[in-house]
Amino acid sequence: MNKLKVMHLTYDMRIGGTEMVIKNLIQGSDADTFDMSIFCIEKPIGPWGIDLQNSGITIDAKERKPGFDISLISAIRKHLKVNKIDIIHCHQYSPWVYGVLAAFGLKTKVIFTEHGRFYPDSTSWKRKLLNPWLCRITDYITVISKATKQALIDFEYIPEERIHVIYNGIKPLVADVNEVKSLQQQYLFPNDAKILGTVARLDPIKNQTMMIEAFAKVLQAQPNTYLFIIGDGEERQKLESLVDVLNIRNNVIFTGYIANPVNYIALMDIFLLSSLSEGTSMTLLEAMSLGKPCVVTDAGGNSEIINDGLNGLVTENNNAAAYSLAIIKLLESQFLEKYQQNASQYFNDLFSIKYMTLHYSKIYKNLCENSPTNSITCDK
């Protein structure tokens, strides 16, 4: 039996959520069944792209020109024909537009996956006219959350019945016990200290400003609490200034960017995510895989990952008072250990890499076996 050739079309393979999904799909799928490759429409391809190339995965790239690049469509089309690609899996909107137009009239099947939305969301008259037609020549459409699905309906004019939800899946993290102990000693936390933390780029969309304001309120009730902010970005100076203004510098640790923060997450009692907008947060899944209960804002797919009162708490978006109360409630909860157990179980049941790859593998096979697209049911 010949392998099915699946080509992932994306912007690039830098370090990010979409790129992690592609990486996990390639590494988690059956190599005897699928021959997977990547085509990037931007350069450089990024560190994960280089890693995958070094492991034997074929990655091609053509940097798109400013504006709508017609030559890019021709380049992708030629690549599909020369390499006899069975399925082009387009990740995010622009790659979808280029990919579906390139595959038009070929035997290549087209899948479009939307990974997230900008905040605030918007639309245009061009999309209102174009997208319904693009849908008709697209074989399957998936999204990473119910919130993202609703956004495609409201802003992209894609019929509800065409959109299927498949949550992101990752490999569970494994911490180094000795390294975690070393971190505890390095930061000299008291034995009864409670550790909060977040891992994200320091960007306005992540709203760490609200998180820090909420943490200042937490300290009034729980003074023996500390906050790790792991990441870097344009907001760092502003956030550090806010910490100084609030006079909480002794309890907030900015680590900067850490390539593999697993041991820091393992050190935390509670993981925090305060975003104004999210798809399916990979760091949230990573924290859950380590059994960390989470306090999140009700943004995008957060409330689909965190079952309020089960594996964490969900608060109103951009509300520091509500967010601080949720953190205090979880810190004071006699059921914190139960929340931790629930986080691990919830992750294993719904967000493992095995679960995600199983769903996409079913779609790939059914499309190439000419099964009707409406017979492929993968929603949870």
Rank of each mutant, 00 (worst) to 15 (best):
V243T: 00
D154W: 13
C378A: 12
R77Q: 09
S361N: 07
I88R: 04
L272V: 07
I41V: 14
D349I: 11
F34Q: 06
L134S: 10
M36Y: 14
F228V: 05
M36Q: 15
S281W: 03
N168F: 02
E213D: 15
L80H: 08
F112G: 00
D60W: 15
Q345T: 11
D232M: 07
A103M: 08
G17M: 04
S124R: 13
A61T: 08
K292H: 06
K380S: 15
T138E: 08
K146W: 13
K362E: 05
Q345F: 01
Q186V: 08
F228A: 00
R201P: 09
P293L: 02
N307I: 13
K107G: 10
S371A: 12
D86C: 04
S333C: 11
V245Y: 00
V177M: 14
V199Q: 02
G197N: 02
E304T: 05
I305C: 12
K149D: 10
G46L: 04
K23E: 14
M13I: 05
L130Q: 07
I73N: 04
V262I: 11
A287V: 05
L106C: 13
Y364V: 03
L101I: 08
K194H: 05
A193S: 10
T198R: 04
Q341H: 05
Y167L: 01
V100I: 07
V100W: 02
N317P: 13
K149V: 04
T315M: 09
G116Q: 08
R136W: 14
E337K: 15
G67F: 08
F228T: 09
S145V: 10
W133G: 14
K206L: 03
T123S: 13
S289N: 13
L276P: 04
I270Q: 00
Y323D: 08
I85N: 02
L310T: 15
Y157P: 04
E19L: 06
N302F: 03
I363T: 01
P120A: 06
R64D: 01
K362M: 12
T10S: 07
F228I: 10
N366V: 11
A343T: 12
V6G: 00
D121R: 15
Q340F: 12
P293F: 05
M282Q: 04
D269G: 06
L25D: 05
K354P: 04
V296Q: 04
N311M: 12
C368A: 06
Y264D: 01
E161S: 09
H359K: 10
G301T: 01
A147S: 15
Y98C: 00
Y346V: 13
I70Y: 14
S324T: 12
Q53E: 14
Y98K: 01
C135Y: 13
A200V: 07
E156M: 12
A151Q: 12
L202S: 07
E160H: 10
D192F: 07
E114K: 14
I229F: 00
Q345V: 06
L239Q: 00
N263I: 01
